[in-house]
Amino acid sequence: MKTKALILGLCACGIAIIPSLLGEGYLIQVLNLAILNAIVVLGLNFVTGFTGQINFGQAAFFGLGAYATGIATLAGAPWLAALFLSGLVAAIASLALGVPTLRLRSYYLAMTTIGFGEIVRLVLIHWEEVTGGTSGLRAIPPISAFGFRVESQMASYYVLVFALALAILFALRIRNSSFGRAMIATRDSEVAAELSGVNTIRVKVLALMIGAIYAGLAGCFFASTIHYISPDSFTNRQAVLLLTMLIIGGTGSIWGAVAGAIGLTMLPEAFRFLDQWYLVLYGSAVIAVISFAPGGLASAIPNVVTRLKAAR
């Protein structure tokens, strides 16, 4: 118990001093992006990780949340109202996508969620009067609530860390509740789950909706910390990246999802010199992980640890 508190304390200190090490600038902005991705991937983990339903629509939910906030705050709405709106828009969109399609099996579901992502992207591009078309929305106002305005990337960092902490806490609580058990039961055996009294369709829709709300709220934070959004950030390619973050981190593992998202958002910065080769290696790495460690790092690390211990 004491060691646990100590470790937590050390982590908190580490997290608190990071910004002063990086300084205001590009790196902290990337870190902020990484935290936002972690929230989005945590959301994806409900649907794909716990419930076992593939979802290529997560980037679109993220985008809907970002545009909801962008449009609302540029029109003068208070930030808190925009935050609420982002969650609501994503939730409604998830119902529209989920209710008709979650009865479908793997490949069909994959296709309909890709289709959904593609449709959202096309609407963002072509509904120019509202979305600004391909050039997107600029000068989106920063986070401001309860009399505080969060202007700098450094200040945003602390807000985002707090949001991520809440996202992790809620994910852990849901995982260890009747909802989490019903989700995993649905993934492991849909037939047995139904016959244990679980309404599996409702569980899938709920998982998609919780995931979408995570993405929508993260979208709001994205718009108001980066201040600029365009359809490019919410493509199907982005949806694929989010899924690979989850797979590499470990499908169904909350900490794996966070680690995967943060790691794979930061990594390209370290490997900039690779240029186009980076994505070639990235794709190959995903294939390798799926083939050799399908549980992702979350399962590979304990395996390696036990093996090392056994070897001693």
């Binding site: 009747s178 058990r181 019903a182 039961a185 492991d188 679980v198």
Partner: peptide
């Protein structure tokens, strides 16, 4: 047809929780 990745107790809880 068990919920293979859940614990034994959690398997039973899934049915009990309704």
């Amino acid at each position: 047809r068990l919920f293979g990745t859940l614990s034994v107790l959690d398997n039973v809880k899934v049915a009990a929780q309704r």
